[in-house]
Design a protein around this nucleic acid. Sequence first.
DNA 1: AGACCTTACGGCCGGCGTAACAATA
DNA 2: TATTGTTACGCCGGCCGTAAGGTCT
Lengths: 279, 279
Amino acid sequence: MPELYLLRQLAAFKEYGTLSEAAERLYLSQPALSRNMKKLEEEIGVPLFVRSRNKLELNENGRLTAELAEKALTEIDGIAKQVRDFERSRRTISLGVCAPAPIWKLTPLLSQLYPTMMIQTEITEETQLLEGLHNGQYKLIVLHFQPSDRNYISCACGTEKLFFSLPPSHRLAKEKELYFSDLDGESFLLMSEIGFWHDMTIRKMPHSRFLIQNDRFTFDEIVSASVLPTFNTDTANAFFASPSDRIEIPIRDEEAEASYFLVCLKKNEEQFGQLFAAL
Amino acid sequence: MPELYLLRQLAAFKEYGTLSEAAERLYLSQPALSRNMKKLEEEIGVPLFVRSRNKLELNENGRLTAELAEKALTEIDGIAKQVRDFERSRRTISLGVCAPAPIWKLTPLLSQLYPTMMIQTEITEETQLLEGLHNGQYKLIVLHFQPSDRNYISCACGTEKLFFSLPPSHRLAKEKELYFSDLDGESFLLMSEIGFWHDMTIRKMPHSRFLIQNDRFTFDEIVSASVLPTFNTDTANAFFASPSDRIEIPIRDEEAEASYFLVCLKKNEEQFGQLFAAL
DNA sequence: AGACCTTACGGCCGGCGTAACAATA
DNA sequence: TATTGTTACGCCGGCCGTAAGGTCT
């Protein structure tokens, strides 16, 4: 079986065309490369080169060998990477969620229950979450509906209720309750990465413009320095300081209240049993 | 990139379960194997083993690594074989024919025109010939019709006419010409490996039985020692001694005369140009 | 003369074996 | 005590570099 250094050197010779050039790229003396190519040819047992007096070229066999060598080298090079990736995935719990709120509760809980594991979270849409759960991208996902499939284990993990967050000067700031439609058409400040809330507000308020902020600090500054309406939720208020100088008004549409469900694959039941028990 | 000897040794350890056993199978001292497994683990950078005081087992990472190693080793092992096969196929002209007769003319011609090449012949049916021409199994084929496809180069390479070969005592031995139907129902001696003639005679003489002989010598002996009818062709007579004590009577059916066409792929036109010119 | 390949010779590093030790059953 | 795995030490083969030589443009 040809050794790797021979295959590497053949691949380099194919790439660079001359022994001298290839040897230089390999940080190898040119005579060494010459010898080794001869050795490889001998080992395979068929001519790989056409030899003029001072020129060396691959023949068809040589080109084939070099291509196969490249493939094999790539594969071997991939082994370490694959194993490291596998190890990392074994050591991390990747949690995909449809909205930020569940992260606030689950991350501390996971860290406590699985102190040796890395916790990785990602917010994305629910079709992607389900796909990612199956292909191993996520070990746990949080949806805002309960999946029916029997291959899943799931349990409720909290609710979240949406409020309008209005400046006191707003024309509707004194109302006790509002509908999405009441403010449809006004411009809203909105954080990015809020999961399904983003799509929902767009759907319920098709005439509004949403001014997306990527940075939390910037968002807070603009909220307190402007009269633009925005949103808040009960869960956010439970975890973070609620902004002063803002009136929060419940939204009556049923879509403004979400229930979250934590889901994992049945085959991972054992690993996450204590987590589900704790919820 | 892990060296092959490390991958081989890991694969052996996976196969045999203990270092001692694996080392023995590898013709290697056990301490060497111990060291090398540690080295591989270090190189990949993740734990591959669970270590008790005097026991060593693969963990999940280790099993994955060993599987990937086996795959890579198989691939590298296949390189030399593939290249040798490729070289051999480059050095042989494989000729597939639909009947034996074309071989008698073409084999000497090929040997003469391509003295460095091995000539390999095979008799099979025409659908297989065409398939084999495309997948590289055959470089040349002989059909008994001219293919229309523009991807082929083809030219006529002879005809062959079938005769009944009857003992003088046969009731029809004095006829000048006969049809297949005239002898339909009688038992015939027939050589095996006669290509499309086999199917044709069965089709034209559905009530006859054909007594197939695999050995040429046996066939000749039985022919001269029996009164069983058989066949002969003009081409066979041109190349071999025709049997004495046999009357040969032309067959009038048009299927009894075949024209042969030598075919190669257009892309091999250059290689076989002189062959087609010689025909 | 410069670029390229091959052959010859000697050094050195890395993988191996032997030996010695520790731990289990 | 027999089996298994780890550590320590020295040998040796194989791969490499340097040097020298040949061929082509």
